[in-house]
Write a protein that binds this DNA or RNA. Structure first.
Length: 380
RNA sequence: UCCAGAGUAGCUCAAUGGUAGAGCAGCCGGCUGUUAACCGGCGGGUUACAGGUUCGAGCCCUGUCUCUGGAG
C-alpha cells in the first residue's frame, strides 16, 4: 500500500510511505542491490545501521544458485539471508538484456543457458512469479522484456507487446502472503510506446509501477526523457520505481520527475573498483593524490569508514588488495546514497526541494561521459 | 684476491645476431533492475659504462664498474 504524504510545488517530487509485509518504507527510497542474496561486501547489521529500508534479490540468479529447494527449506529468502526488512525481487527481466548472448526469447518466456554450466533454464511470467512467490519477497516484479538501447522501433514495439502480454499473465499468478506486484513500463525512448505501455499496465491495476528499459546504454538526457514519458501516465497514488538508476545527481533529478523508488549497483560496484561517491562527484580513491591525504572520504559523512578511516589508509588497503578497502568503500557509497535520499525527503517535507535540487546539481561534478552527453544534447 | 653468474621500464623479468616486450606499480577513462573486488587506454628505455667484430649487437669479443654466490 502506498500513501502519498506531500508533493513538492516546484516539481513532481513527492514524499510517501510504502507499507510492505516486512515494514514501512519512507519514499523516495534507494534500495541496495543484493542480487545473490547479499548486498556485496556489506552484512545485514551494517545495512540496518546505515538506515537501509529495503534490499533487492534476483530471481534468475537465486534460482540458479542456491536453487529454490534450499531457499524453501530455509524458510524463504528473508530467513535464508537473515534480513527481516522488506525485500524486492527482480524477475529476471533484466537478464534478458544483460545476458543477451546466452538467451533466446520465445513466446511464453525466455530460454537461458546458465552462465555457470550451460544448463537450460526457462523463465516466463509463470516461472518468474512462482519463484518470487517462493522467495517470499515483499514486492515482486513482473517478468518483462528489457530490450537494449540500440533496438529498432520494431524491436521496441515487440518488446512492449511481449511485456504487456506477460504482465497480464504475471498479474494472475498466485502470490506469497502480503506480496505486492509491480508492473514494468517498457518502450525505450519512444513516447508513444511508453504511453501505450503505461496505460495498458495501469489498466491491469498493479500495486506499483516501474519504469524499465533505462540504464541499458542510453545517454543521460535520453534516460531522463524516457522516465518522463512513462511517468506522466502513471497514477499519483501508486509508487513509481525507476529501475537500475542512477548516479546521485540523477537520483535528485529523477525524484524531481516524480519517481519514488530506485535501485542501482553503482554504489557497490564502483566501490569494489576503487571509486567513492561524494556530494562533489565521484573520486578514485586509488589515485596517488590520496597517498598522504588523511581526511575522510567525505567531510561530514557519518558512515563507519568516514568516522574511522582516512583516504590515505583506504587507498593503501585498495592498493595492497586488502578486502577491507572495498568493503569500506561499499559502506561509504551505500550510506552516501541513503543520506542523499534522507536529505531529499527532508527537503521535500520542509518545502525546500527546489533549492536543494539547485544546490545539489551545482555542486556535483559529473563524469566526462555525462558532460559529453549533455553537450551533445545541447547541440541539438 | 681468485672463480662463477648476473646487470634490459619505478619493480620482477622476457626477447634463434634482424622493429626491445610482458606482468605489476603509475596516470587517465569507464562501470547504472550485478555473468564485474572488473574492463579499457596511455606514458615509460643511452639494454651498467667504454671500445671492438659485423651490413646489423640487448645478444658475440675486450676492458672497467656494480651486485650475487662460491673459494680463500
Amino acid at each position: 500500500m502506498f500513501e502519498l504524504l506531500k508533493t513538492d510545488p516546484s516539481s513532481k517530487a513527492r514524499v510517501g510511505r510504502l507499507t510492505t509485509a516486512h515494514g514501512v518504507i519512507d519514499t523516495p527510497v534507494f534500495m541496495s542491490v543484493g542480487t545473490q542474496g547479499s548486498v556485496k561486501a556489506i552484512d545485514p547489521r551494517e545495512l540496518r545501521e546505515m538506515g537501509t529500508q529495503i534490499i533487492l534479490g534476483n530471481t534468475y540468479h537465486l534460482n540458479i544458485r542456491p536453487g529454490m529447494e534450499i531457499i524453501r527449506t530455509a524458510g524463504g529468502l528473508h530467513r535464508f539471508i537473515s534480513w527481516d526488512g522488506p525485500i524486492l525481487t527482480d524477475s529476471g527481466g533484466f537478464q534478458v538484456f544483460s545476458l543477451a548472448t546466452i538467451r533466446k526469447i520465445q513466446a511464453h518466456g525466455v530460454e537461458f543457458r546458465s552462465h555457470l554450466d550451460g544448463s537450460l533454464l526457462f523463465l516466463g511470467p509463470k516461472e518468474a512469479m512462482g519463484i518470487q512467490r517462493e522467495l517470499g519477497s515483499d514486492i515482486a516484479m513482473v517478468f518483462d522484456d528489457c530490450p537494449p538501447h540500440t533496438s529498432t522501433p520494431r524491436e521496441l514495439r515487440a518488446a512492449v507487446e511481449r511485456t504487456l502480454r506477460w504482465a497480464a499473465e504475471c498479474r494472475e499468478q498466485p502470490r506469497a502472503p502480503g506480496q505486492q506486484v509491480f508492473g514494468i513500463v517498457q518502450g525505450g525512448t519512444n513516447a508513444a510506446l511508453r504511453e501505450e505501455c503505461a496505460r495498458a499496465l495501469v489498466a491491469l491495476d498493479f500495486d506499483g509501477y516501474a519504469i524499465g528499459g533505462v540504464s541499458v546504454g542510453e545517454p543521460e538526457p535520453e534516460m531522463l526523457r524516457a522516465v518522463e514519458m512513462a511517468e506522466s501516465f502513471l497514477p499519483a497514488d501508486k509508487a513509481r520505481y525507476a529501475m537500475g538508476l542512477g548516479t546521485p545527481a540523477q537520483l535528485v533529478e529523477l525524484v524531481a520527475r516524480g519517481v519514488d523508488m530506485f535501485d542501482c549497483v553503482l554504489p557497490t560496484r564502483v566501490a569494489r573498483n576503487g571509486t567513492a561517491f561524494t556530494r562533489n562527484g565521484s573520486i578514485s580513491i586509488k589515485g596517488g593524490a590520496y597517498k598522504a591525504d588523511f581526511r575522510p572520504i567525505e567531510e561530514g559523512c557519518d558512515c563507519f569508514a568516514c568516522r574511522n578511516f582516512s583516504r590515505a589508509y583506504l587507498r593503501h588497503l585498495l592498493n595492497v588488495g586488502e578486502i577491507l578497502g572495498l568493503r569500506m568503500l561499499s559502506v561509504h557509497n551505500t550510506r552516501m546514497y541513503l543520506r542523499v535520499m534522507e536529505d531529499i525527503r527532508g527537503a521535500i517535507a520542509a518545502g525546500e526541494f527546489a533549492g536543494f535540487r539547485r544546490e545539489f546539481a551545482a555542486r556535483y561534478v559529473p563524469t566526462q561521459k555525462v558532460l559529453l552527453a549533455r553537450a551533445a544534447e545541447a547541440e541539438r
